[in-house]
Design a protein around this nucleic acid. Structure first.
Lengths: 120, 120
DNA sequence: ATCATATATGAGCATTTGTTCATATGTTAG
DNA sequence: CTAACATATGAACAAATGCTCATATATGAT
């Protein structure tokens, strides 16, 4: 029996039953994949990448980061907000100053892996 | 001697000389950081993430991927192009069909690390 | 209280991004 | 050659993104 011809189907389906099953089994939930994409989106901007690299060296306040990157306090603050919301960085307040630092070892691992690929 | 008051400077500079030096020393070149961001940008979209997860199981043709994800051939082809350009996937032609597969072990490592963070 | 400093945030705007649609290219069969 | 199929690609458009500017909030000093 030949498969019924429908709009989006290849004439000959190369995906075999067992592979389709495997994909559906091993593919994480839609929601998880969305969250994963949201996470990587944060690494997909050079300003945020630079912020993370700067924080590799030391915790730092907003103004210091802005200076080091040659950008406005506002721009940096907006980006820190995004990084903070995804728990990639944490902060502590000391008087008027807020110090930011990396929250997670994954940050370093992810960036390092990306570097390996880019460096090829 | 107090530091000269300028626009973007904190009143008290928290970044000490040695840390500034360390940052400038360890921070990769602007161009590399840009490439790194470009790479992660590819992981920052759930369609492309799904494509990569599907390819974990097996090489697959464009049409099969489109079917599995319930998207149009064109949309998938556009995304495959981006993934291909960054050498995250490779392809081989077999007659009319083009089979795509993962190009690199880094892909898996990067996604796994991201997953670990998301799963917290 | 007022002032100054450090940071956060909302609105506006220009740029980028992902999809759709139409069409082009490439391959095979007849 | 033509026809059918698989894939690639350019234009258009809506949605998302990152920065700027103005302003709000928070803390400390006077």
């Amino acid at each position: 029996m030949t498969a019924p011809k429908e709009a989006e189907h290849c004439d000959y389906i190369h995906v075999h039953e067992d592979i389709v099953e495997q994909v559906n089994q091993n593919m994480p939930d839609e929601e998880i994949l969305y969250d994963l994409a949201e996470l990587f989106k944060l690494f997909g901007d050079s300003t945020r990448i630079k912020i993370l690299y700067v924080l590799f060296e030391s915790e730092m306040c907003v103004c210091d980061i802005a200076q080091l990157l040659g950008m406005t306090q506002s721009a940096i603050s907006h980006q820190l907000r995004a990084l903070k919301q995804s728990k990639l960085i944490k902060y502590r307040r000391e008087g008027k100053t807020v110090f930011y630092s990396l929250a997670d070892g994954h940050v370093r691992t992810i960036l390092d892996q990306g570097m390996e690929h880019v460096a090829e």
